[in-house]
Amino acid sequence: MKSLAELAALREKAKAEVNLRNNGEDKIRVVVGMATCGIAAGARPVLAAFVEEADKRQLKNVMITQTGCIGICKLEPVVEVYVPGQEKVTYVKMTAEKAVKVVTDHLINGQVVSEYTIGTEQ
């Protein structure tokens, strides 16, 4: 059986970093559509890619959440990115690979990946 000690270690690590944390308001929010349409179109690996990158790069200012169907099922998987103080960016027809690029370009470097956004998508 996989040891639960690793889980306890995560707690110890978080305690040590507690002063680096903040509570929500100035965090970047990444919202993945996880209704039946999103799931069928491949939202789970997209969500997993965001989580994996956030873990790997220790992005403490990013919050990943889910939502239901926002009504553009044929463009799923849909991901909305809310950077505090900026307009919402909607990415469509996402994949795990695209998610990695959104993390590096948009979440880390502040550059919207415009070729994946809803207006530009073909």
Binding site: K2, L7, L10, A14, E52, A54, T65
Partner: peptide, 27 residues
């Protein structure tokens, strides 16, 4: 899991989510 993590870490923490995934895969 919650008992082990206490109030310090949420189950939504990316590190915890990664742990959950490997916990299930390995077991």
């Amino acid at each position: 899991f919650r008992e082990i993590l206490g109030d310090d870490v949420s189950l939504s923490d990316p590190g915890v989510m990664t742990y959950i995934k490997s916990y299930i895969d390995e077991n």
